Amino acid sequence: MDSARRERARRFVGLHREGCFLLPNAWDVGSARVLEAAGFPAVATTSAGVAFSLGRPDHAFFAEQAAEDRVDRATMLRRVREIADGIRVPLSADLEDGYGETPKTVAETITMTLAAGAAGGNIEDFTGSRERPLYEPELAADRIRAARAAVDASGEPFVLVGRTDGLLVGGTLDDCVARANAYLAAGADCAFVPGAADAATIGTLVREIDGPLNVVMGLTGNALTLDDLRELGVRRVTVGGSIARAIYGHLVTAARELADKGTFSYADAQIPQDELNRLFTPSADRPGT
C-alpha cells in the first residue's frame, strides 16, 4: 500500500472512533466520483449495485439463482480496485460472505481486498441456503477471527466489519446482538445489523452491542434522519444498494416512456454534458486530496 493510500486508510479508521458519519455506496468509478464530489469523507461499494451493473443478480438464496449467476470474487475485486484507483477518499468493500465458507477462504479474500486498495470491508454470516441461512455462530466468529489475522499480518490500517443478517432471515434481535458481540470479540472493528430500521430496535442495538454500530438506511424509505441516528448513538450509516436501485428505477421509467409513449420528458432531469465531463476529468483539485 503506498503512502497516500495508507494515509486515507488511517483517516477511515479514525472515522470509526467517535461521532456518526454517512458512508454512501457506489458501484463503479463514475458513481463513486459523484459521491466523492459531494464531499463524503469515504465511499463504500454495494455488491448489489456492482452485480446489477454487470447484468447479474445480487447474492441471494441459492434456490432463487444459479451459482454461476453470482458475481465471483475475482470480478468483484476487480471492480473494488477500479474504484479505489479512481477516487481520493477511502473505500470500504462489500465482500458478502467472503466468497467461501472456510476461515481460510475469508482470510484470502481480505488479503486480496487489501491488495486491491480498500481501507475496509464487510464479512457477513449469510450463507445463501434456506435450510441454513446463517453460518453457525462458532464458525461465523472463526471466519471473522481469520479475517482479523489477515489484516494484522498485512500491517496496514483496515476497518473490518462483522455483519449479521439475522434480522433479514427472520432471526431474533437477541441472536443478532449475541452474534455482533461475538464478531467484535473475534476482531471486528464495527458491527453491522441490516434490517434494523426503527428507533427502538436501533437504540437497543446501540446499548447492547459492545462496539461501533453500522446501520443501513434507504431499504424502505425509512423516516429516520442522520441526525436521528446520531442521537441514537449509531457510529456509521450506509445506504446499501438503494442509490443504485433508484438510478435503475429512473432507467426503467425512461425505457417505459420511450417504449409506451414515444415521448422524451425523462431527459428534462438529465445532467448537462459539460458538467459530467468536468466531474469525470481527472484533476489535481478533485476532493479527497
Rank of each mutant, 00 (worst) to 15 (best):
T263A: 10
L219Y: 15
T220Q: 14
G233F: 01
R236W: 06
G221P: 00
K261D: 12
D228T: 02
T220E: 14
T238H: 05
I243M: 14
L229V: 02
T263M: 02
L251E: 11
S242T: 13
Y248T: 13
T253R: 15
S242V: 05
K261M: 09
G249R: 07
I243R: 06
T238K: 01
R245M: 07
D228R: 01
D228C: 04
I247L: 15
H250S: 13
A223E: 13
A255E: 10
F264C: 10
R235N: 08
I243T: 08
V237D: 08
A259N: 14
E231R: 12
A255M: 13
T253F: 09
K261I: 03
L226D: 12
V252D: 12
A223W: 10
G240E: 00
G249N: 05
H250I: 05
L219K: 06
L224H: 04
G241Y: 00
R256I: 00
A244V: 09
R230H: 11
V234I: 03
G240W: 01
V252N: 11
A246S: 14
T238D: 09
D228E: 03
G241D: 02
A259T: 09
E231T: 07
Y248C: 09
G241R: 04
E257D: 08
L226R: 15
G221Q: 05
S265P: 02
G240M: 09
R245Q: 15
L229Y: 02
G240Y: 00
F264D: 10
V239K: 02
L232C: 02
T238Y: 05
F264G: 07
K261G: 10
D227Y: 00
L229S: 09
S242Y: 14
G241T: 11
G249C: 06
T220K: 13
V239M: 09
R245S: 08
A223P: 04
T263C: 05
T220L: 13
G221C: 07
V237W: 01
H250A: 10
A255F: 11
G221D: 01
L229A: 06
L232S: 04
G249D: 05
I247E: 12
G221R: 12
R256G: 00
I247H: 07
S242K: 06
L258W: 00
L219D: 15
L258R: 12
H250R: 11
